[in-house]
Design a protein around this nucleic acid. Sequence first.
DNA 1: ATTTATAGTCAACCAGGTTGTCTATCGTGT
DNA 2: ACACGATAGACAACCTGGTTGACTATAAAT
Lengths: 151, 151
Amino acid sequence: MSSYELPLRLFLAFRVLIDELHAELARQGHPDIRPMHGFVLQAIGAHGTTAVELGRTLGVSKQAAGKTIETLERLGYVERGVDPRDSRRKIVRISSKGYDALAKSARIFDRLRQGWAERLGEERLQALESDLRKVTPQDVWRLDVPGWFGA
Amino acid sequence: MSSYELPLRLFLAFRVLIDELHAELARQGHPDIRPMHGFVLQAIGAHGTTAVELGRTLGVSKQAAGKTIETLERLGYVERGVDPRDSRRKIVRISSKGYDALAKSARIFDRLRQGWAERLGEERLQALESDLRKVTPQDVWRLDVPGWFGA
DNA sequence: ATTTATAGTCAACCAGGTTGTCTATCGTGT
DNA sequence: ACACGATAGACAACCTGGTTGACTATAAAT
């Protein structure tokens, strides 16, 4: 096929996962969560963060990060509190609803991955994951912080 | 390995290709082309199309398609003419500048794919492409792209 | 001939990004 | 001790690319 196939298929593969995730999340009580909110919650992390910090992590301006936080707060996925040691900072923390969404997302992603493993074979899927790691930047934003999914 | 890694890596792999494409396109005389414009040109095709048709192909509203066409026309990548058999329709055709961008994009994608082939091995890359085809829809052009191309 | 469907445009709105400006607070160097 | 530079957050104006709804012109069907 065309030179466009590889990038397009990568994008479509991503979209397939994200679309199924959100259809399923909607069924499981999170109809208003938007694609990427899960990734933002991941980026916020278990210890909380601030707008400036989140902006740096995600590679956007602090104002953009602030708007996203505002949206997530309005939807109830994060809560904001003050930093007792620095009254300029407002700590953003994942709420219990946020943890619920994260836990459900993780389970759904695992199930979707299982579906792929059945279609491609676990071996081939592991090869695919390994190859993707080789062509993408390492150390994206620490995805393996322990204790993220418990609530 | 978190449940989020697979979708994230797919997205990052896509972004790596798109970012390098546009850096290179800018060097080759197309500094103002935006991520996705190439895909839209592909969707327009050699026979031309209309705003309504393009919207259907891309899975967006006719108004959104119209805005994108307007942008591409302003940048000189497409031209609009009337349909002699239906005076309501305005046919959108790829301009010579548009074809130049498409040809260069194809060459750049091919070169990027070659780089991956050298890093992963041609065999593994073909396996990856084959696996991606198995988990993505056949209808490659319905990719409600909005928002996903970032940058 | 009248009705219905279609193509395109305009307007209002939204999300999420940008830059610039401003205030409050912190931390440091003299 | 304190003045000053750096930082966190908020606000405003603006951009892009989506959305829906309303409207006009034209084509097609009954």
